[in-house]
Amino acid sequence: MASLTIQGVSKSYGDVEVMHDIDLDIADGEFVVFVGPSGCGKSTLLRMIAGLEDISGGTVAIGDQVVNEVAPAKRGVAMVFQTYALYPHMNVYKNMAFGLRQAKMPEDEIDKRVRGAAEVLHITDYLDRTPRALSGGQRQRVAIGRAIVREPEVFLFDEPLSNLDAALRVQTRLEIARLHERLGSTMIYVTHDQVEAMTLADKIVVLRDGRIEQVGSPIELYERPRNAFVAQFIGSPKMNFFEASTLSENAATALGITIDESAIVGIRPEHLRVCAEGQEAIRAKLELVEHLGEHVLVHMIADDGTEFITKMEKPPQTARGDYIAYSADPSLVHQFDKASGQRR
C-alpha cells in the first residue's frame, strides 16, 4: 500500500495543453474518485498515473518514488479497464495469471493467488472458460481479479461499471466498496456518474477542462461546493440557479441573505419547501410532476422563464399552471459570483 503525490502535472499533445498544473495528494488506503464531464481529463490523469500516457510536466510519486519514467508494470499499480480488456484468446485462469507469469513468479504461488482471487470474486467455476463465454458482469469480475492477483499498491479503475446494466452496476459498485474495505488498498476510480462518486469515495476530485475544480469528501462537495460548476455537478437532480431578478421582493428576508445583481443564488431541489404566499423566495407555475415512487420531482417555471425542479415527498395538490410559493432554510442556500462562478 502506498500514498500518491501528484505535483504540478501537465499534459500536452503537441502545442495543446490538455491538463494544467494538477496538484493532488492521495493518502494510503484512500478511495479517491475522479469525476467530471467527458473530456475533462479524468481518464488522462488516471492513465498518466498508470504509465500509459507520458507526463509532460510535473511529477507523479507513488510512495516515495517518482514514477514518471517507470514502466507501468513496475509502478505497483493495477488497472481495470472500461472495456475489461481481457485477453480473448486466454481462459479466465490464464488471463489472471498472465501478469504474474510475466513477473516470473513460481507457478504454485500463481495458482494460490489466482484461486484466492477467484474465490473472492465468485468466479472459480469459470476459470476454464474464455472471456467470450462470460456475461458482462462476469467479465468485469475477471478484470478485477486480474488486478487483485498482482497485489498492487494502488488500484486504478477507469469507468469500470459503464458497460454494465443498471442493476448489475449497483451490485458491482457495492462489491468494489467491499473489496476496498477488505484489501485496504489505495484506489483511484474514474467515473462520470456522480452517484458512483458520492457512494464510493472517501475523497472526490472534480475535474473540468483539465483543471481540478474542487477536492473534498462527498459531503463537503455537496454542502459547500466551491463554485457553480461543482454545485451543479454534484447532486441529482442538479442544483437550481436563480438570478436576483427571478426571486421575489422579500426573498432576502425569506432566505436570510443579501441579494445583489452580481450574484446567482443556488438551492438544491430537495431543499426548496412550499411556504405560505407572501413569505416566499420564489413563486412559479407548476409545469410537470414526475412520480418516482418514494418521492416526486416537480418541474416549475417562473414568470421570467426560469425553470427549476423541486423534490418533494408527496405530489402537490396544485393544478398544472397554478402558482406555488417556495422558500428554503438559510443554511441551505448557496451564492455564487455571476461572473466568476466562485462561491461567496
Binding site: G51, P72, A73, K74, A85, L86, Y87, F98, G99
Partner: peptide
C-alpha cells in the same frame, strides 16, 4: 484489435 488489450498487456508487464 482494441488498444486496451495491448495496454492491459503493458500493465501486466509484458515486453
Amino acid at each position: 484489435i482494441p488498444k486496451e488489450i495491448i495496454e492491459a498487456g503493458k500493465m501486466d508487464g509484458v515486453s
